[in-house]
């Protein structure tokens, strides 16, 4: 079964979250401008409306976003199941030391997106602009194990990837791949939910 459609859903959700977030910011900025009769900058608005959700939640949220990208890359680019071998990790696996042949790819991705996150995430970022309930925080924290499970499943499927599989392993692959994709997409939905809720709130 080809899971390329999952890639489409992933990007659509990502684009939806980004678009709504920008819309929310613009809408808030316009409202503030109206109240203050235009005598305010966007930066000031961002500072004024942002709120602190606490360090633990922020750490979990950052971890979740890094894991989301890492899980996506593992699902599609670890083993050449849906995409040709030339664009997957298997093309470059010989560059890794043998004791890191499994985690080398994941570590590389975590470091890469960690650096990107460290460079771009500041005090005022995504969730600072939205009220996040405690329940939502628990859901967002829950995405960490969900995405870790998705990554582990992708790694296990990569380890099993072979032209000589026995039927038992093939059965498990049929079960586990949809699970990994579902965990990935559900986590993505949870992570962008505060943005969607904020948009709905603004609309009402």
């Amino acid at each position: 079964m080809n899971y390329i459609f999952g890639m489409g859903i992933f990007f659509i959700l990502m684009a939806l979250g980004s678009g709504l977030h920008i819309l929310n910011l613009l809408k808030t900025y316009k409202k503030v401008q109206k109240i203050t009769e235009g005598d305010v900058q966007m930066g000031e608005v961002i500072k004024k409306i942002s709120r602190n959700h606490g360090p633990n939640f922020t750490a979990f949220a950052i971890t979740s976003w890094i894991l989301l990208i890492t899980a996506f890359v593992h699902f599609y680019f670890f083993a050449p199941v849906d995409l040709p071998k030339g664009v997957t990790y298997f093309r470059f696996i010989s560059l890794m030391p043998s004791f890191l042949e499994i985690s080398g790819f994941g570590i590389f991705m975590l470091v890469l997106f960690g650096i990107i996150a460290a460079l771009f995430i500041r005090k005022h970022w995504l969730y600072s602009f939205y009220p996040v309930s405690n329940r939502m925080k628990r859901y967002i924290a829950l995405t960490v194990p969900m995405l870790l499970v998705s990554i582990i499943i992708s790694i296990v499927l990569g380890i099993w990837y072979s032209s000589t599989l026995d039927s038992e392993i093939e059965f498990w692959i049929e079960i586990l791949r949809p699970v990994a994709l579902a965990l990935l997409l559900v986590s993505e939905g949870i992570l962008i939910w505060p943005v969607i809720a904020g948009f709905k709130e603004g609309a009402t």
């Binding site: 360090p55 750490a59 890094i66 894991l67 890191l100 975590l110 960690g114 960490v144 870790l148």
Partner: peptide
Amino acid sequence: LIVLMSLLGGFVIERGSYR
């Protein structure tokens, strides 16, 4: 290793960069 690094990563970034 991946689990540990991902968990640590979020906290390190939160402590080092966010604050």
